[in-house]
Each structure stands twice: as C-alpha cells, then as structure tokens.
Design a protein around this nucleic acid. Structure first.
Lengths: 346, 346
DNA sequence: TGATTTAGGTCAAACGTTTTACCGAGCAGA
DNA sequence: TCTGCTCGGTAAAACGTTTGACCTAAATCA
C-alpha cells in the first residue's frame, strides 16, 4: 500500500541503492538531476520510510522508553511533558509505559521496550522496588545493555545515570521558612521511610531545627506514601499526637492536598490556624483557595535534562556515569503565616 | 549482543523455522522434547524477540499512536491513563506525541507514527485544525490508511471512528441545576465558537432556559479557549457586562479555575456571592476550597473505549464507521448554591 | 596512446523474523 | 514389495532498508 524505496527505484529506473543514498543525503556523488528526480518521485508517491526496516539494519530506533508510575499524577504528567518536548526536539519519540506503581508492570514494560529495541529509557521507580526486585531489574538492564536515566532515585545497584534533587536543601528551605515565621511545633508527613530521599529531607529538617536551637519532635513525624489519602491520615495522626501543632510540612503537594482536606473537615483555617508547606510545587497548588507554599522543583526541566543525559549516553555509551542534582527553591504563597498570637521572628 | 532466534537454533542444532514455530506456539507438530529444549534454551539465553524484524514481516507493530494536545493538562493526562491501561491490557503499547496544540506538530507526529508503522492512532485535534488544515490531515490519513479514533471531535472530513460526548445533555444538566437553584442571570464562558461542541453545549443551555421561560442573555456569553487565562478574562467581561450575574458556567474546569481566581481577586465569594459550574470534572476540581460543581465526563473510560474501538478496527478495517457518545452527569459540590436572598425554587 | 582518475551508479549481503512449501523416515496396509 | 500416510522437521523467500565493495564510461594526465 504505502510506497517503498523499491517503488521509487522502479519508477525512476534507478537502483535501490541510489534512492537510499539520495534520500538519506549521504555524501555520495549522485548527479543533481538524479537527486531531484528521486526527491520528486518520493514526494509524488507519498513515500515515508519504513522505520522497522531501517532500525533492523541500523540498530537504532530513535525511540526512547518512558517508564512512569502514574501519568495521571500531575508531577509525572509535567515530567512527561518535558521529556516529550526534548525528545521531540531531537527527533526521538517516546513509548509511554504507565506502570501503575507496580513492580510486575515495570518489568513487563522493560521487556516490551527491550523488544521494541528502544535506544534508551527514562524511568521512575515504584517505591515497592528494592532489594531483590531491584536486583532483578538491574540485571535485566545490564543484560540488555539498555541505557537508562533514573529519575529521583539513585541506586548503586543500577548502573544508570541519575537525575536527582537536592532533597536536603529543599527541606532546609521549608524548615527555615517555618521557623522564621515563628513556628515551633511542626508536623511532618514524609515519604516511604526506606527511600533515600526521605532520609535526606528529614535530615535537612532536623539540621535546621538544631541549628536554630529548636527542639525537633519525632512524634510529630508520620510516614506517608505520596498519595492524597496519606496526607489526610497523616494530619489526623499529627493532630492526635499534639493538637497544638501550628504547621505541617508534607513531602509532596499531593499529600498537602490531603492535609487541606483534613483541616477543612475539622474547620481548621489555613494559614490562620495552620500553616502548610508542600514539596514539588505542581501546577494546581497555586489554584488552591489558600495557594500552597511549596518547595519547587523544576519539573519540566528535569524531564528535559533526563532526555539530554539519555541521548548523550546513547551516543556514547562509554561516558562515565553521571548524576545531576537539581536545586529546589521555595515558593512562598498564602498557606503559610506566622502562628496565631505571634509575629515573625525577624 | 542480545540473543536471536539464530543463536537458539545454533545452540540446539535445530532450524530457525522450528525455533520460530515453537516460540510462537504455532500448532505445528513439533515433538514435546524439542519444544522443551527450545524453551529452555531461549530462557537460558535471555531471548527477547526483535519486534522490528517481526513487524517487518507481519506488518503489524502492536503499537498505537497517541496524539494529544497537552499531556500536562489533567484532562488529557487522565485520558492517557485510560488509553495506556487499555492498550496495555491488549498487549499494545503506545507512542506518545504531545502536539502542544499545534497543527504543524500534529502533522509531524502523524508522519512519525506512519513511519513507525503504528497499527492505529487515537487522536485529539487542536482547535486550530479546520478547513484546509483538516483537509490535509484527512488526506494524509486516507493516504496511509491509518485507522484512527478521534476524541471529542466529529468531522465529516475525516473517515475515522469517533468518541464523543453528549454535549447538549451536559449543558442541560448544568443549566437545570442553576435554574432550580434560582439563578436567572447566568454568565457563560464557552469554547472556541467554530467547534461543534460549543454549539451543542450552547444549544442545551438555551433550550433549558427557553423551556423554563427564562430569558437567555447572549451578552453574558463570552468565548473562551479552554485555558485558565480565558476563564479569568471571561469572568471580567461578564462582570463588566452585568455585575449582578449570580452564576457562571464555564465549558471546562480549567476555565472555571480562572473564574475562581478572578472572583478571588475581586473578593467575590463562592458560592455565597457567585455560583460556578465547570465541565469535565477533572480530578483537582474537588480539591478546590469550594469544591467545584461540574459536568462530569467519564474521562478514563473514554480513553479505554477509544482504544477498544481502535483495536476493533485494526482487527477489521471493514467495520462500518462508529461514533460512540458518552453521557455526562452532574456532580454537585459546594461551588453552587441559591443566589443571595433567594431560596431554591423547588 | 595508454594508464589513471573521477563521476555516477549498481550489486548483493545483511538485519531477525515469519511462513509456505517441501522433504525424508518410518509405518500400515495390501 | 510397493503405496501412501503421518510425524517431525527444514529450506528459502520475503519484509524494506543500509552499506561496503565493485563496476563502467568518460575525462585527465604524462
């Protein structure tokens, strides 16, 4: 149905080789008239190269895999936007694999991608993936020598380039902001405790408290899982532990939304009765009635950078392993204020 | 590097044909021992079939294209989720093309997808695409006989299956709700006027007003473009036209967010001073401080259904053209109430 | 004039599969 | 002993490209 290079050859009376050479602008010496003839015929026949055939011989597909936990999550959606844009700029396209946060699906996706011969993959890892699961995954990648860029997760197991965030710094910004406002009783809803990110963010928080001579209260720290519901539940637990808490710091915006809901259900006002700080600064956070103060990540740029790293590695697999760290910044909005009855300290 | 069918053949001393037959479970008569031997060797060598090669001969890629306007927009993100999930269930994978709402990018994506031999494509069309642009696009699809499912846009030009929404019904639900609450002065922020959807929604609105003997005021209808900013601007224009408006109906939730922002900037409370109704009911609408009353679309199911339609057509291209219409429903939340000083009518 | 170069192309193998014939060995039946 | 079947398997073409080696005729050189 679709015209092939053969059709062009037949139509012009030239050889397949010549057509291929011309269409790919190889620096071969083919006369201008012949070139033109071929181009014209190609246009006329609506010729579109068959990438399957091309890839079969060239061993490259100009395709990247994107293994993502949940495309409906605005963080990942935004990340994908950056990835997609950058890939497109380099004439790569991307196969989207939504793993729904599951290990099995992640492995299945990876096999699929390997089967489709993608040139590389950008991936985010489900929290569930660690220890032996991580090992299996890592072995698979090694086995198929698939270039990978890992987002927001470093792991000595996986020989991949990474894109990370200065978690500690992010927490420091948030903590500093709250302490300066005068908050002393701060609740915190973290991510899964086995993740390195969680530890680093917690460290940043503790350090700032220590540096300011403010007591850090571990009983006000509850573990969340980055979903809205755990923000809600976490708030309840914090409030139970100490009803006089004046601020809550959630390790992502989604959980902060859960915090909002819980506070609303309890009739606790933001920021007059409770300050809330999030992390990620996803698009909708600014749309909340009390626009959320949040540690902002350059999400889209992360996506773009990830593709950049990946494409560089695809071009040269011998590159030393690289691990970029992006700097967060604090976006102060209306969800934070001095606690009732106090003024800011400085 | 990666093992091929040839390696298996060599290792087992069997022919390529036999290996292929076994691995694809063709109903050929190959002895159980041979089968087992092949399976074992395949496992041992970490064999993964090369889809490029497979596709080259079978002419099918088990891949679907997804041409979408903006993956970072929650509506499309959710749609993609449904699409991705359903595709995955059918062992198809999808190539994501974010067109950023541009015609040129749409065409480029389509060419790319044709080149990659996708079996079909699910697409949303930029508002910009109409008339001759639509013609070019349509010709292209015709030319490459690419099965297509069009979302939220019917067009006699394109010979494609469609997935649509009962726009009229959606508006009727919204209008009915507002009238019952007692609203008489209702502002409306529509989509681009050349879209069929806009006309149908407007019709639903007018009809309900007429049926209830309420005057419909065209000067309170302003055209939007489905982006937040136009919700903001539209609200300003409506308020200028008649400051005593008591409700605003936006043709999508994103524009409703713009309405929220404008009202907030002007100190107008929701719902006590202004009721707001949206359309789409995207995830975040329920997270707003005044959770948004919205005409809900089964977004994820739309995505799933689209894939269903597409896969059916891929399997049988002779199918008559199909056009599914999905029914919206009204989700009443806290952004709507009786106008000040009135009680609901019934 | 004969040898070389150059311009302009072409041949054929290779990529990793699928698939349609085809083949040979063993066995049953007559 | 021959015919014909079945069982288990194989040969080879085809899919649409790319690419390194090769070819031929004309132009250039000495």
């Amino acid at each position: 149905m679709t015209a092939t290079i053969k059709d062009i050859a037949a139509r012009t009376g030239l050889s397949i080789t010549t057509v291929s050479l011309v269409l790919n602008n190889k620096q071969s010496r083919i006369s201008p008239k012949t070139r033109q003839l071929i181009f014209d015929t190609a246009r006329e026949l609506n010729y579109i190269p068959n990438q399957m055939a091309v890839s079969l011989v060239t061993k490259e597909t100009k395709t990247l895999g994107l293994v993502i936990m949940d495309i409906a999550n605005p963080f990942f959606a935004e990340l994908s936007k950056g990835i997609s844009a950058k890939a497109s700029a380099y004439a790569f396209d991307i196969i989207l694999c939504d793993t729904g946060d599951s290990y099995e699906q992640t492995m299945r996706s990876l096999k699929l991608l390997a089967s489709k011969n993608v040139d590389g993959v950008v991936m985010t890892l489900s929290d569930e993936i660690r220890d032996e699961k991580m090992k299996v995954l890592s072995d698979f990648l090694q086995n198929h020598t698939l270039p990978v860029v890992l987002i927001e997760r470093v792991d000595r197991l996986v020989m991949a380039d990474c894109l990370n965030v200065n978690h500690e710094k992010g927490s420091r910004l948030a903590a500093d902001h709250l302490l300066k406002l005068g908050h002393r009783k701060v609740g915190c809803i973290t991510g899964p405790s086995h993740l390195e990110a969680t530890g680093r963010r917690l460290k940043g928080l503790k350090d700032v408290f220590a540096e300011n001579g403010v007591e850090f209260r571990p009983e006000l720290v509850v573990e969340g899982d980055y979903h809205i519901e755990s923000g809600y539940a976490g708030t309840e637990r914090i409030l139970t532990a100490d009803p006089s808490v004046t601020a809550i710091y959630a390790f992502n915006d989604l959980m902060a939304y859960g915090v909002y809901q819980c506070l609303k259900d309890r009739g606790i006002g933001i920021p007059d009765q409770m300050s809330v700080v999030g992390f990620d600064d996803i698009f909708f956070s600014k749309m909340l009635y009390a626009p959320l103060t949040s540690v902002a990540l350059p999400i889209r740029q992360m996506g773009e950078r990830a593709v950049q790293l990946l494409i560089e590695r695809v071009a040269n697999r011998e590159l030393p392993r690289r691990c970029d760290v992006l700097e967060p910044s604090l976006i102060v909005r209306e969800s934070t204020a001095a606690p009732r009855g106090t003024g800011p300290l400085d």
